[in-house]
Each structure stands twice: as C-alpha cells, then as structure tokens.
C-alpha cells in the first residue's frame, strides 16, 4: 500500500516538474517575442509553412465534416429539419469544429514537423552551433514558430469555417433538396460575430499550443534518431490533448458569462 502511494507521489512530482519546465519554456518564449532581435523573414517562412501549406488538409477535412454534419442533422431531426441543419452546421462549425479540426490537423502536420526539425538540430549540435555564432537559438528557432503558429491558425480556421459551411450547403441543396436561397438565408441569420470571434480566439490558443509543444519537445530531445522520434510523438499527442482540454476551458469561459 505504501509502495503504491509512493509511486503515485513520484508520478505526481514528475508531472509537476514537467509542467513547471513547460511553463517556464512558454513564459521565456513569450517574453522573447517582445524583445529584439526579431526575425521577420523566419516568421514569414513559418507562416507560409504552417498556414498556406496546411490549407489543402484543413480544407479537405473541413468540407467533409460540413457535409457529414448536414447529413447527420437531417436524419436526426424529423420535423423542421431545414432550420436545424442550417443552425447546427453554422453554430457548431464556427464555435467548435472549425478550430478543433484545424487545430488537430495542424498538430499532426506542424507539431510533428517542428519537433522533428528542432530535435534533429539538437542532436546534430546545430543548436549549439547557433550559440557559437552569437545567435540565441531560442529567439531564432522557437520565437518565430510561436508567433507564426498563433497567427496562422486563426487564418486557417477562418477559411475552414467558410469551406465547412459550404460543405453543409452542398449537401443541403444537392442531396437533401432544400431551397438554396432559403437555406443560405437561414445560415446567414444564424451566423453570429460572437461565435466566429470566439472560435478564432480559440484557434489562436491552439496554434500557440501546437507550436509550443513542437518546439518544447524538439528542443529537449536527446539520444539520436530514436530521441527525435519520441519527441515527435510526444509533440503530437500532447498538443492534441492540450487542444481538447483548453477547448473545454475556453468554452466554459466564453459561454458561461
């Protein structure tokens, strides 16, 4: 029994240590965002990598999610289905599905790539080489990614929202034979600035989380190729979990008041 308690205690302490290290990493990262030198060229490149090149995956998942949503809602509601479909597609996409789906896709795409790239730089001493060339590796590698992640994801989600709602519209008008003008009208009536903005704020947080977990795990990876491999796994898994947890917290914050 004591052994059992002791091991729970040990795990708890390890958890606290890891949380502390991560928090310190995040705070250092944020504070460096506001102090020169800045690397606009690197931020630009990361924006293209994280945002522009994620468009196809995010767009594809968004459109199919929107389509499925319309179909499911239609079969779920026998009476008044048309209004329900419009409402469900618009509200759930802008509030939840847009940010979460884009966040998870980007976690897979960018979190993994970031952890692998920075992890490889760590184990091949490229990060040490940066310091010897009078460049702060934190500013050069971590900060541009944090900034780009925080900016890129809301932009992506904005596009994903539009594509997802368009997917719902396609199914509603072609498969379910609703009147296109009437359906668009209902979607438009349901669309609210608050929902869209809350979704975009969430996505900024998710984007930061993805970049942070990629950088953190990569930066602290050790032990050659295997170490980089597990850093990549941790980056994706921890980012995905943190996205869902923070989604709940943010939702509770936004809609409780």
């Amino acid at each position: 029994m004591l052994d059992f308690l002791a091991s729970i205690g040990r795990i708890f302490i390890l958890f606290l240590q890891a949380t502390g290290r991560l928090t310190l990493f995040a705070v250092t990262g944020i504070s460096h965002c506001f102090r020169p030198p800045f690397y606009p060229r690197l931020i630009g490149r990361q924006l293209v990598d994280m945002g522009y090149y994620s468009l196809p995956v995010v767009g594809l998942t968004a459109i199919f999610t929107g389509m499925v949503l319309a179909l499911q809602t239609h079969t779920g509601f026998a009476i008044g289905a048309e209004t329900a479909v419009a409402t469900v597609v618009v509200v759930s996409f802008t509030r939840e599905l847009g940010p979460v789906i884009a966040g998870l896709m980007v976690a897979g795409r960018i979190g993994a790539a970031t952890a692998a790239e920075i992890g490889t730089m760590r184990v091949t001493e490229q990060i040490d080489a940066l310091s010897t060339l009078s460049t702060n590796p934190f500013k050069y590698l971590v900060v541009p990614r944090l900034i780009a992640g925080t900016i890129a994801l809301p932009l992506l989600v904005f596009v994903a929202d539009i594509i997802g709602m368009f997917g719902g519209f396609l199914v509603a008008t072609y498969t379910l034979d609703y009147n296109p003008r009437g359906f668009i009208g209902q979607m438009w009536d349901t669309l609210s600035t608050d929902d869209v903005v809350s979704g975009l704020i969430k996505s900024a947080v998710f984007g930061f989380i993805v970049a942070l977990m990629g950088c953190y795990n990569g930066y602290h990876s050790k032990g050659g190729a295997q170490g980089v491999g597990s850093a990549t796994t941790y980056a994706v898994v921890s980012a995905a979990i943190m996205i869902l947890v923070s989604d709940y917290v943010l939702t509770a914050l936004f809609f409780s008041s």
Binding site: M121, Q126, D128, A129, T132, S134
Partner: peptide, 20 residues
C-alpha cells in the same frame, strides 16, 4: 554570454551545418 561568443569560432565534431 552571446557577446563573448564573438571571440570564438567552433568546428563541431559532426560539422553541425544548418541543413535548412
């Protein structure tokens, strides 16, 4: 610390070139 690095040049064991 970074300022002090201006005095140094280092050739790493594995070259450590930036592959990007």
């Amino acid at each position: 610390r970074l300022g002090l690095m201006h005095k140094f040049g280092m050739l790493f064991q594995g070259a450590a070139l930036f592959d990007s």
